[in-house]
Write a protein that binds this DNA or RNA. Structure first.
Length: 262
DNA sequence: CCCCAGGGGTACC
DNA sequence: GGTACCCATGGG
């Protein structure tokens, strides 16, 4: 893994802070520290210089952002968001951690989601160094008690998370199979999990299964689409794909971050 | 005390 | 098909 490279069309801060990942933090010296799989990683960008534990695939650096953005519609709100956060890329995260994190996310603020994920890791994950814990494996959550999970501040989501872990642990849901399915099929498969609807399924498919068209719609996106002129229109997957194209999920992430940072 | 948060299940019409 | 209400908890 290279320790430093030159990058174009990449914005590390936007990529790590746009709300798609919950385990990165910016430290005072300009470095980002995060936990990816079983490793503690550090990254820093200074202009085009990217330093640290560089994983091109994880960071979305193995695709052409110019080609992706070229497929976007010319909506002024979207084009403004793209200019505002140019270089934001969709990460390729680990499916179980992503699914679990978004099961924990329902009607929670992002800062609280980060806290829940941290609590779960500290309580059930492998210790990596003095103050860092890996996200727990499926079997650890499958074997947890509900009081233990509720102590991690999961609230009513505790049963949802444990049921999902047990489904996966029993082999009744194979996360590894999702990336090779048709998009609609993968969406249905994830929604078999109690507590996983269209929004959480789309987050999982976009952020960890390579489905660039997956378009999660939450309250922020409803506001953004409203701003784009979708007033009164019912938001359907077909309309989203027709309008935003095969990289709708990337457009969504620009719109989401722009909506939240304004 | 109030409303809201990267929702979804259920009951009911 | 839609809508109201519930779930647990903390931020502002």
């Amino acid at each position: 893994m290279p320790r430093q490279i030159y990058v174009t069309d990449f914005n590390l801060a936007a990529t790590l802070e746009c709300g798609q990942a919950f385990r990165w933090a910016r430290t005072a010296d300009g470095w980002f520290t995060g936990i990816v799989g079983q490793r503690v990683c550090r990254l820093r960008q200074t202009g085009k210089l990217l330093e640290g534990d560089i994983d091109r695939h994880y960071l979305g650096l193995d695709v052409s952002l110019l080609d992706i953005v070229a497929t976007f519609p010319s909506d002024e709100v979207l084009q403004h968001a793209v200019r505002q956060h140019w270089g934001l890329r969709v990460l390729r995260q680990e499916p179980w951690e992503t699914l679990a994190s978004f099961i924990a996310s329902s009607t929670k603020q992002i800062i609280q989601i980060r806290q829940i994920v941290e609590n779960l890791s500290h309580r059930f994950g492998e210790q990596l160094d003095d103050n860092a814990y890996a996200f727990p494996p499926v079997v650890k959550i499958a074997g947890a008690t509900l009081p233990q999970l509720r102590a991690c501040k999961l609230g009513f989501r505790a049963e949802y998370l444990r049921a999902a872990a047990r489904l996966i642990d029993d082999g009744k849901l194979q996360l590894n199979a999702l990336p090779v399915m048709e998009y609609e099929r993968a969406l249905e498969e994830l929604q078999k999990i109690h507590g996983v609807g269209e929004k959480i399924a789309n987050c999982t498919l976009l952020f960890s299964c390579g489905f660039d068209q997956a378009f999660p719609v939450d309250v922020w996106m409803q506001r953004s689409l409203h701003r784009l002129g979708w007033r009164g229109k019912k938001i359907t997957r077909r309309k989203i794909l027709n309008h935003f194209g095969p990289y709708a999920g990337w457009a969504q992430q620009y719109l989401f971050y722009s909506e939240r940072s304004s």
